[in-house]
């Protein structure tokens, strides 16, 4: 029996900061950053937005598209490296907001930027196993980059949510694949506010090795080639990496551009490839095949092959499109406001 996505939705905060604004503060050369990383600006969460609030909004969009009674959702998995609580689940808040409690299984996932796709992976598997009619996987982050660190130009905020089911499928899951090794390229220790990374080691032995191996493994397993896909989406730590991965795998720019959000969105970490997928589903046509490969430091990649069904056209207009949100009345802020919003500077406690 086929299983797949029955509802999807994304959420993009409206505030933005430009690369120039960050570079100005740290004396960095903005044009070279923009060119080198292919980043122009990134989304910024306001102090009243976090992984939970964005997950709720993305999930509400997904429920609208799925047109289901939220009480039928059997599981919610929120993947994030910025869960608002160290101890207390994000998933229960989302479940409560949707009206999906109390007969539901919740778990918060964490695997650097891969937590979203792993939530999707588990939710999809439970539906496939016949354990429940619907399951929800969410990727969301309000990730932090240390002041002046390269990550400060990319770490952004956003969320995407996917409801999996067996009826009224909009994208059938044709195959999955996963590829993981122990690779210390990026981490954040307990009680630390900012993550650390291993510089250029995050490239070849980390991102590219896992993304390319996962994509190749998945295509080998499913006996497909890039020619079989209308679209491809990869994890987007910046603008450059996913484009290079696409090129090495033999996907034309035209196949990846729709889901390539990072130049103006930044790196939404657990939300990254799931949001790219939602941007593709917004415009996909029945029969289109999509390759999706996530990446999480530490390190690993989840791969999915989606085949879009005839039902897609009925749901695309039921919630805001991802790119429409990205382009909707952005509010640009300066570095001071950004630093305040992100807790980098704090008022004396009241």
């Amino acid at each position: 029996m086929e299983v797949g996505i029955v509802g999807y939705g994304a959420y993009v905060p409206r505030h933005r900061i430009k690369v120039e604004e960050i570079a100005k503060v740290w004396g960095a050369d903005a044009p070279s950053y923009k060119k080198g990383l292919m980043l122009r600006e990134k989304s910024v969460p306001t102090p009243d937005q976090d992984t939970i609030t964005m997950s709720v909004e993305a999930a509400r969009h997904a429920v609208r598209r799925a047109g289901i009674d939220p009480a039928l959702i059997g599981a919610i998995y929120v993947g994030s490296e910025s869960h608002p609580y160290a101890v207390k689940p994000s998933g229960t808040v989302v479940a409560e907001a949707l009206g999906a409690t109390p007969e539901i299984h919740c778990a918060d996932m964490e695997f650097a930027c891969k937590a979203g796709s792993e939530g999707m992976f588990v939710a999809l598997s439970l539906v496939k196993a016949g354990q429940m009619p619907y399951a929800l996987g969410i990727g969301a982050d309000t990730s932090q980059g240390a002041p002046g660190d390269a990550l400060e130009y990319s770490a952004s905020a956003g969320a995407a949510a996917y409801i999996f089911g067996r009826e009224k499928i909009v994208a059938v899951c044709e195959d999955t694949y996963a590829y993981m090794t122990d690779t210390p390229d990026f981490w954040r220790r307990e009680y630390q506010f900012y993550p650390r990374h291993a510089g250029r080691y995050t490239g070849e032995p980390a991102y590219f090795k896992h993304v390319l191996s996962c994509a190749r493994g998945l295509m080998a397993k499913s006996k497909t080639t890039p020619a079989d896909f209308r679209w491809a989406v990869f994890h987007q730590p910046n603008g450059k990496f996913p484009m290079r991965a696409a090129q090495e795998l033999g996907f034309s720019k035209e196949k990846v551009e729709q889901g390539w959000l990072s130049p103006t969105l930044g790196n939404t970490y657990s939300g990254s490839s799931p949001m790219g997928l939602s941007a593709i589903l917004d415009v996909a046509k029945p029969g289109d095949r999509i390759l999706m490969v996530s990446y999480g430091s530490g390190a690993g990649s989840d791969g999915f092959i989606w085949r879009v069904t005839d039902h897609i056209t009925a749901v695309q207009g039921l919630a805001p499109h991802t790119r429409a949100q990205l382009e909707d009345r952005p509010i640009y802020i300066d570095y001071g406001t950004y630093a305040k919003y992100r807790g980098k500077i704090r008022k004396l406690a009241e």
Partner: peptide, 25 residues
């Protein structure tokens, strides 16, 4: 209406969620 954080009980207490209004598109 959008789902947002409304207040928090300091740095270590509970986070209080709820609704705020945002301009409709």
């Amino acid at each position: 209406l959008e789902f947002r954080r409304l207040q928090q009980d300091g740095e270590s207490g509970i986070i209080c969620y709820g609704y705020k209004f945002v301009p409709a598109i």
